[in-house]
């Protein structure tokens, strides 16, 4: 069922926001095809009546009380920022959608 083409890889790279070089696209296309055919066997193992396990240790209703804690100062928040204006993170122009 695997049908990995270079277009598939380019689409996935766009979804994942990674700008691949044409060489990387080619390499990844063959690697991904090989990997996908290797992992496809998971389909053999399961049937519809097997429930999925998302968490290895089952728990539920894990929550906290509605209390404020652990806040950072804006200085701490911005400490690792590539660019900021002193209180907010700065990014280059966003095209497309009006906010």
């Amino acid at each position: 069922m695997s049908d990995i083409t270079e277009d598939t890889v380019r689409h996935l790279a766009n979804l994942a926001r990674i700008a691949l070089t044409p060489e990387e696209v080619t390499t990844l296309t063959s690697e991904l095809a090989a990997i996908v055919s290797a992992v496809e066997k998971v389909n053999e193992a399961v049937s519809a009546d097997v429930p999925a396990t998302s968490h290895p240790i089952p728990m539920e209703n894990v929550w906290r009380e509605d209390v404020v804690a652990d806040e950072l100062t804006s200085e701490q928040a911005l400490t690792g920022a590539p660019d900021h204006d002193g209180s907010r993170f700065r990014v280059t122009a966003i095209l497309g959608e009006e906010a």
Partner: peptide
């Protein structure tokens, strides 16, 4: 656990979780 306030100075009502800092984890507010 950052405070839910309107009009605070920018990036002061934040914890590592709100900033998506590496390693931070969400916990549900009851």
């Amino acid at each position: 656990s950052a405070s839910n306030v309107f009009g605070a100075d920018p990036n002061t009502a934040v914890t590592p979780v709100c900033l998506g800092l590496p390693g931070s984890l969400p916990v549900v507010n009851k």
